[in-house]
Amino acid sequence: MAESNGVQAAVDIPADKAEILARPLEERDDIVVCENVHKWFGDFCAVRDVSMRVKRGEVVVIFGPSGSGKSTFIRMINRLEEHQQGRIVIDGIEMTNDVRNLDAIRREVGMVFQQFNLFPHITVLGNITLAPQRVRHLPRSDAEALAMRLLERVGIPEQAQKYPAELSGGQQQRVAIARALAMQPQIMLFDEPTSALDPEMIKEVLDAMRELAATGMTMLCVTHEMGFAREVADRMAFFDEGALVELGPPDQIFNNPQEDRTKLFLDQIL
């Protein structure tokens, strides 16, 4: 199939970004700062006392058993869930109830969902151009040119005029990635992006994510794709019962986990 090799090897990285990316991770600034973050659903504590700092351009894979609070955690980073205690700062912007801060943060953060959540009533092109036109006020022609560049990047420019329902799951998820990228975010959140896909489509989505990581995008991915994590992640975060149990490079997590719970979980899934 022509679509599956759609990931382009060469990608343009803007000069200012390239300069930051040239530095080693330790010397870059923190783009996501979470300090003692808590979240409850009723009396149930879904996320407890999570502190995490993510460097610019870093790829963090978040994993853990279901119900461990990992999705809730990344949904707090663009405030699809509100944190009730602690502090979240995104690229220097404090997450508060102030609508201007929230707008600014949502412009910085793109998100890809497990169920794609494409808008079924508009075409693929319309899905991608909607937010750039309505939120960033790009003229239609610019938004469409941008959308076509992004569709080429994820390898499906020929699907632009179709409706989401006419695409395979893998194609839909790649459109969702293009849609999030169209807002030119600094950070991308992935909430189990391949969990709803048939096995043969997982690769095409992971390829698109690999390519994105190679451009220096800051990424927080909730995923169970351990091969992807080993290959792409700078650090991995293991969540259990709402708490961040262990955070470290893949080498440590896979070969020398510091916590018994991490080891137990990895033994179960690998």
């Binding site: 663009n78 793109g110 909607l130």
Partner: peptide, 8 residues
């Protein structure tokens, strides 16, 4: 949620 995440 998707619309909110896009900043609408």
């Amino acid at each position: 949620e998707a619309a909110q995440a896009l900043g609408l």
